[in-house]
Design a protein around this nucleic acid. Structure first.
Lengths: 209, 209
DNA sequence: ATCCACATGGGACCAAGGTCCCATATCCTT
DNA sequence: AAGGATATGGGACCTTGGTCCCATGTGGAT
């Protein structure tokens, strides 16, 4: 029911670090997957699941910070834990400002990393649940016909059927028909449901004068 | 209309740093106020306004990080920019995890600090506007009588007057009376308004089965 | 003792929302 | 040419919501 098993993506160019991190994760029952470079990770594709990244900062070609930026731009929101052998304050601040959940210096305490990973997984799960709900609602809204969508906007803005009919230059009867079909398609039982769905999906009401 | 003028609170035990930061802020038209210690700042009281803190990490008695924690516990949400002469990675990560907006190392570029301060002020303004709105709504909800509050919860959950009457073991007529008084007190013109207010104030609907 | 806020509710309406069955017209696809 | 999705709307009917005026009872504050 939690959806999918969370996966810990380990990205480090040092094979011994990868092996040791993988062992650590598996020792506490976590699923881990290793990559020797950011490029290799990016080629994997499909990160639909939850989990987090454990990411080395300094790597050839694409640095950890660059990868973080690329993932953000691509709309991939896996939490990132940085590990670094030669991290500096500006580097860690940049990473944290960009949304990293932690930034650990090697050598680090294994338990510290595990704690951080757990926090990241929890965060990822919460965020994914929210995104999924929002996505689900947006899909339903997308399934509305153009006319239904117009009526929808006005309904969640608090307009009465009569006012909606005026604005759309049609009859109140037709508005009622659309409205019924909106409630069915959106799977909303009450107006309160519908308004809350719009809020969750970030759909703003219109100015009601 | 922006509410109140933002104030930059400078907290550093070094008088020359305070003077120079104050001069820097005033040179770009910002209002600054200096304090030699966290204690001195805490004694000032009333931080109703917007603005941000520019805070030295290492200070006698109460460190910058301690002050950050105290303010968070006290529910004072001014953004914090740390400045530090001997900052370490773990220190900066702790500060950022606790919500700091930036962490600069001395000597820093003056423009970097000003940029950070501007970002912090913008953030503070947005967050304050949100908190104020939430607070305003919560006050209105608090002004409801106990019975009105019960009806309110059920209304925003999508229940019909008849169902509400059943649950509260009263008549539909009485529910209508309460409902009208709720709409007036909450300054809501439509049900959609009321539901959105409840959402903004973080008031959850009940299970409507 | 009196006043006020709170909760209750009847009667009478009217406005608004929802749901049937019905029908027409357009446009697009197969 | 036929079917499906979309948009339109009339008629009939019932439910729900909102708003008047009215009234009663209780408990606490002045």
């Amino acid at each position: 029911m939690t959806g999918t098993e969370p996966v810990i993506f380990i990205i480090d160019d040092d094979p011994s670090v990868r092996r040791s991190l993988e062992r650590l994760m598996k020792s506490v029952g976590l699923v881990a997957e290793s990559f020797a470079s950011a490029r290799e990770f990016l080629q994997r594709g499909h990160w639909a699941e939850t989990g987090c990244l454990v990411l080395d900062v300094r790597m050839p070609e694409i640095s950890g910070l660059d990868l973080q930026e690329q993932l953000a731009r691509a709309g991939i929101f896996l939490p990132i834990i940085f590990i670094s052998g030669h991290g500096t304050v500006p580097m860690s601040v940049r990473a944290m400002k960009a949304g990293a959940t932690d930034f650990l210096l090697k050598p680090f305490d294994e338990q510290d990393l595990l704690d951080s990973v757990q926090r990241a997984i929890d965060q990822a799960g919460r965020e994914k649940a929210q995104r999924d709900e929002k996505q689900e609602i947006r899909e339903r809204v997308g399934a509305l016909t153009p006319r239904e969508h117009e009526v929808f906007s006005l309904v969640i803005s608090g307009f009465m059927n009569k006012q909606i009919a005026d604005r759309l230059k049609t009859s109140e009867k037709t508005v009622k028909v659309h409205r019924a079909s909106i409630m069915a398609k959106m799977d909303a039982r009450t107006l309160a449901d519908l308004v809350r769905m719009a809020e969750k999906a970030g759909i703003q009401p219109l100015q009601s004068k």
